[in-house]
Every structure is written in structure tokens, then in C-alpha cells.
Design a protein around this nucleic acid. Structure first.
Lengths: 216, 216
DNA sequence: CACAATCCGAACCGTACGGTACGGTTCACC
DNA sequence: GGTGAACCGTACCGTACGGTTCGGATTGTG
């Protein structure tokens, strides 16, 4: 493996890769290409042309094509921000609103074109390359979010607002209630129905049902 | 488009493609290659060698590579069987068991390596080729199953065992409770946890929660 | 100005794979 | 036995793309 390749195994999950501004611009172009045309649209020559850089620079910065793909995933993951635990769980009403906001943000991220494109990319590669991309996406994306969610839910349990045994299970149910099969259908290229595009009400319904199951 | 290509647009969703026995053997080999190595492992030359047929025959039967992929999806879809509505909803107990069995079968299909491989393939191609594979998989797979599920749930409602407004919504919730994010995690290459491999108890828990939400 | 580093643009190479052509074999049917 | 269709195996072609190399332009530094 080239020394300049973006190394996943040794990089800490929370260590920002810190791409240079120029590199970030290039990665943004790569992301655009990916969103528009899928993986086969992201060729080294095409990216070099689009981003007005040389292939030499691409290989210098990212090692090889796989390194480039990994960098794109890492870059996008670093761009995604979640509303942080604003205020330590005041009353029941605001906590519930907090959960709903979390779910809405989750839907917003998962249903965005960029997230879909990266998931498609990682899934398409998941049985090659010892599956580096899938691991990266899971670590930087899903596991990150799920740990955030667990602390939120456990905070609700501490305050007697929720009741469950394992936070992980509760989160999984919340996820299932919110996402259902919409994610996979979008990944497969189906368009979201109008109702499914109304993230706010989708989140509300999911939280309603979640409280029916886990409300104290 | 070659005349011999497997045509999706005009084929009825429920019309069996009726591949010849020889072709089915070849498609089975293709499926094996796909499961083992993903899309890039399924080359026309490789399939010809593995299945002991000539590339000329492949192109004669399936038109081109896309036609081959479509044929693989259609073939596998035709292989999947679901337990049919056995007996028209006797008592509450057996109906609930029926629902649980349905969910367990659903989990069994979605988590199988072949289903995962085909979903990975279709998702990977979903932003090319005007997305033929995704459409096919959705029509032959998900929509097929969901219509089956809706009639089952509506039967339960008619007998006063369930309560919901729209069967589609109820099914989506049942799906979400059962699948949660496991499907996507498997698609990304993560291994299922031991608990997630116990389909029967997973299905039971999901049905429990479903009844908490929609039981009459 | 001299020097080094960086990077762009373009040309180039090797390879893998989709698709085609063709000779030879089997087999059903007359 | 003769004929034709279906098919196998293999060789072949064109192309697209990953990766490398190189000349020249730009920029920064003492």
C-alpha cells in the first residue's frame, strides 16, 4: 500500500482527517460526481478534469482509487453534524421534542442524496477490498449516531421519562419505526412518496409509537 | 436493444420468465458467483467457464450483460416462496402465530446471502441504466411481499384482531420493528449478532410490539 | 535572480472485460 | 446417411480505465 494512502485501520474514529482546503474542494467535486452518476461516474480522469487538478495530485494525495473513495466517505462523514444534547433533559415535553428533533435529523441525513450515494457506493463494494468502505461508513456514520442516540435515551430513562432494558434495543426500535423500509427503497432508486418527504410528521409519528412502547 | 434481451418493461410482474432448464443452471451458477464475489466477480467469461457454456450462448439468451443481471434477479425472485395464507384466519392465537411466521420468513429471506447479494447488486447499479435492476427487484420482491402482507393484516382487521387505518402503514411498522437497521448493516458487510441470527425470537419480539401498537 | 516545491495538463502503458466471429461437436429429425 | 439447429471452446477486437511519467507553468523563499 502506498504510504500516502488514507489509512483507515490506524486512524482513530474521531480523529479528523484534516484534508487541505484544496483537497476538500476536490473531494466535494468527487462527491458531486458520485451523487450524479454513481460509482462508475467517478473516474480518476473525470475527477481530475472536473476539479481541474492532475491525476498525479490525486494519486499523491489519496494513494489509489480506493484511498480516494475512503477519503470521500471520511470527508462527508466529517461534514455531517447532529444537534448536540442541548441542555440536560429539562421537562418531559422538551425531552420528547428533543427526541423528535433527533429522529427528524436522522431522517434528513439518511434520505439525503449524498448519504444515499455513499451508502450505495459502500454497499456495492461490500464484498471486495476486505470491505474497507463499509467498515468506515459504519464506524463514522451509524455507530457514531447510535452512540449519540443511546446517551440521549438513557438520559430520558434516568429522568423517569422512558422505560427499557437495553438502550441499544430501544434505539433500534426507534430507528425501525422511523426508517421502516424507506431507506432501502430509496437506495434501490425508488422515489420517496410525498408523505415520506414530510420528515417532521414522519418523525412525530415514529416518536408517538415509540412512546407507546417505551414511555414510562 | 437486442431482440433476445430479457425484457422487463413488457413482462408482467407475475408472469414467470420460464427459463429453460439449461438456462436455469447457468443462472444458478451466476448467482453463486455473485454471492461469493459480488458484481465484479460476475464476468461473462467467468460465468461461461464456471457454467461450462459459451459466451455466445450467454449473449444469445440474455442479450447483453445487463440482460443477464436482470435474468438473475428474475430467476431468484421466482425461486422465493412465501407460506401462503394457510386457512382463513381461524382464532386469535393462530392468526398471531401466522403473523409471526410471516415475519420470520421475511427475515429469513432478507437476511439470506443470495438476497443480500442481489440487493447489493441492484443498489450498486441504481444510478445507471435508468435503474432497471432496482425497479425489477422492487416489483418482484418488495412489492410482492408487501401486497401479501397487506391482505394478511386486513384479514386480521376484518376478524377484529387488529386495528389500523391503512394496511400499508401497519405493514411498514411491522417491517420496521422486525428489520430495524439490521438489513442495511448486513448490506454494508457487517456480520449479524448472535441475537439477530435467532430469527424466531426476533420475529416474536417484533410481533409483540406490533400488537402493542395495533392489537384490537 | 536562483532554487525548490508544487501542481497542472497531456501523453502513455497495461490490463481487464464486454462483445463478436468461427471452427468443431453433438443430437434430433427426416 | 444427410441436414440443420443448438451449442461449446477459443481466439480475437475495441475500449475504458487505473496508474505512471514527464515537461512546463506557477508560487514561495532567501
Amino acid at each position: 500500500m502506498p504510504a500516502a494512502a488514507f489509512d483507515i485501520a490506524t486512524s482513530r474514529p474521531d480523529a479528523a482527517p484534516e484534508f487541505s482546503p484544496r483537497q476538500q474542494v476536490v473531494l466535494q467535486h468527487a462527491l458531486t460526481l458520485l451523487v450524479e452518476g454513481g460509482e462508475k461516474a467517478l473516474t480518476t480522469a473525470g475527477l481530475a478534469r472536473t476539479a481541474s487538478c492532475s491525476k498525479e495530485s490525486l494519486y499523491k494525495w489519496f494513494g489509489d482509487r480506493d484511498g480516494l473513495l475512503a477519503a470521500v466517505v471520511a470527508y462527508q462523514a466529517s461534514q455531517v453534524q447532529f444537534p448536540s444534547e442541548a441542555g440536560a433533559t429539562a421537562d418531559a415535553e422538551t425531552f420528547r421534542a428533543h427526541v423528535a428533533a433527533f429522529v427528524e435529523a436522522l431522517l434528513g441525513v439518511l434520505f439525503s442524496e449524498t448519504s444515499l450515494a455513499l451508502n450505495r457506493l459502500s454497499i456495492g463494494q461490500s464484498n471486495t477490498n476486505s470491505n474497507r468502505l463499509g467498515q468506515l461508513l459504519l464506524m463514522r456514520g451509524k455507530h457514531m449516531i447510535s452512540s449519540r442516540a443511546r446517551t440521549m435515551l438513557e438520559s430520558g430513562r434516568r429522568h423517569g421519562l422512558l422505560k427499557f432494558d437495553k438502550a441499544e434495543d430501544a434505539y433500534q426500535v426507534l430507528y425501525g419505526l422511523a426508517i421502516r423500509d424507506v431507506h432501502v427503497r430509496l437506495l434501490l432508486g425508488e422515489a420517496a412518496s410525498p408523505a415520506e418527504q414530510d420528515l417532521k410528521s414522519q418523525a412525530e409519528t415514529a416518536v408517538d409509537r415509540f412512546y407507546q412502547l417505551f414511555g414510562a
